[in-house]
């Protein structure tokens, strides 16, 4: 469990004069659930987009799965799964067709897609929904499906950008059970959230505020360091203090 899955060093991104991410550094071990916690606009999504090859860093760098994020995007793209903030599957396709499409995009053969769909069906409980149009799915289901599409090709590292926003607590709980199961299989999870209760599920947390990392450690360490009872208190202290 000590293999370094993601390494980030002085990573920065600016859009014109606006600094979205300011020299951020952290490391994530394989099989770890690593949380990026912060308010909207703190730089979480920009960080994730740089790690997934969707955005080029302004300066600094790092590796994802051992590949350089400034040069080896193609290799990175093959080894990661990504679930974006917005639900981004096709509403006019059925659940199965969505999975088939993303399987095709990742170059999985037809048989392999069938096999993985069956596995995901079991893990995600898609059942009767498989042949229904995605538009008809309840939001909680859509989110699970989006996760399914992101892990179809069995990536070693999965990036989840606010995967549970807008979902009810029960669906959120189920979603986190899936994430835990993935991590137990050795998949590295990097997840952004602004739900404080979700932050508690992470192995380690990185609190971001105004483009910078303001604190980093396990939930217990953070609470101890800041003399707080909950992550929410830690967060409020950090943001007010900054």
């Amino acid at each position: 469990m000590n293999e370094r899955s993601v390494v980030v060093k002085n990573l920065a991104k600016s859009f014109g004069d606006f600094v979205a991410v300011d020299r951020v550094s952290f490391e994530v071990r394989a099989g770890e659930i690593f949380g990026l916690l912060g308010a909207n606009g703190a730089g979480k999504t920009t960080t994730i987009r740089m790690l997934t090859g969707l955005l080029r860093p302004t300066s600094g760098g790092g590796t994802v799965g051992g590949w350089d994020i400034n040069a080896q995007f193609e290799m990175i793209k093959k080894s990661i799964g990504y679930m974006s903030q917005r639900f981004s599957l096709y509403n006019d396709l059925t659940v199965k067709e969505n999975l088939q499409f993303f399987g095709g995009v990742y170059g999985l053969g037809r048989a392999r897609v069938e096999e993985r769909t069956a596995e995901l069906d079991e893990a995600l409980g898609l059942g009767e929904w498989l042949d229904r149009r995605t538009a008809a799915l309840p939001l909680g289901f859509k989110q699970r499906l989006a996760l399914g599409a992101a892990i179809l090709h069995k990536p070693a590292i999965v990036f989840l950008d606010e995967p549970t926003s807008g979902v009810d607590p029960i669906a959120r709980r189920r979603f986190w059970e899936l994430i835990n199961a993935l991590a137990a299989d050795g998949v590295t999870i990097i997840v952004t959230t602004h739900y404080m209760d979700e932050a508690e599920y992470c192995n380690r947390l990185c609190v971001m505020h105004a483009a910078k990392i303001v604190s980093l450690g396990s939930p217990a360490e953070l609470k101890a360091r800041h003399g707080a009872h909950s992550i929410e208190d830690v967060f409020i202290q950090l943001v007010r203090g900054a």
Binding site: T52, G53, L54, E74, K77, K78, I80, Y82, S84, Q85, R86, F87, S88, L89, Y90, F102, V105, Y106, G107, A149
Partner: peptide
Amino acid sequence: ETGTMEQILVSPI
């Protein structure tokens, strides 16, 4: 607009 392009672009395509 719907964000699916990003989902495609993050793949090795």
